[in-house]
Amino acid sequence: MSACAQDASLPHRPAAFPRAGSGWKGEPLRLAALLAPAAAVFAAFFLLPLVRLILIGAGGAEGWSAYLTTLIDPGHLDSLLSTLALSAGVTLVTLAVSTVAGLFLVRHHFPGHALLVALLTFPLAFPGVVIGFMVIMLAGRQGVIGTITQALTGGKLVFAYSMAGLFLGYVYFSIPRVILTVMAAAEKLDPRLEEAARSLGASPWRVVADVILPALKPALISAGALCFATSMGAFGTAFTLATRINVLPMTIYTEFTLQANIAAAAALSVLLGLITWAALAVARSVAGTSVAAAG
């Protein structure tokens, strides 16, 4: 949305700014004028294509019922469910790994601490294609895991070109964002709260369940929603690993470019958008307003 913000600040039309003496009557007009550039960009790059997309989805031979047909098509439904399962799995694993690691990094300072944090946030710099490439290097046919397992057991373990490879890549890709959010939230925890719980007899695990996790909850929901949305829509990694991986963005790509089934591709796109948006909306209502940034 940075393009949008830039555009809003660009025009300098004196006519749009009434003189200060004109009173409150000019105020709505002035606000409308100030909003106009942003509204124009929003309309041009979001609203129009979206409406067009929705219309295309209904523009096939079946009309609006194409949405229902697309949804209940076994191939598409399967793709949708596996994408949901993958994203949910990635979100849960990422949250678990990042919470443990983030808390540890906030509580313990050791030589190389800053370097480790910097390394952990490194994947933020990679596009999906590079992540996919790295998964292949690790678990592909010539990968490290394959070589090691062959030396040890004689059988080669290869899982890069499947859901498992994609799962690994997404978790790797998601950890930095979640870890940074968890660390920011964990630094604000009041250590006295934990000491109070312990003085009342709570074991370390109870302190985690009763004090630390409730305090981190808004941050975890917000980071989790973002992680889920990213996994739902990510494409580059899947594309690098294998064209046959059955996730929704790949299905949309296949329908669009290979089958030229534009109506189905459009319907699936709208569906993907709706589900992801709904996930963010639910997260926002559960966590309060703190997910606004993620939306």
Partner: peptide
């Protein structure tokens, strides 16, 4: 013994009540 097994009561300057 760690604090959780000493059976002590603690009161802090910052109250340290559980906000949830």
């Amino acid at each position: 013994l760690p604090i959780e097994r000493r059976n002590v009561g603690m009161v802090f300057q910052s109250y340290a009540l559980f906000p949830n």
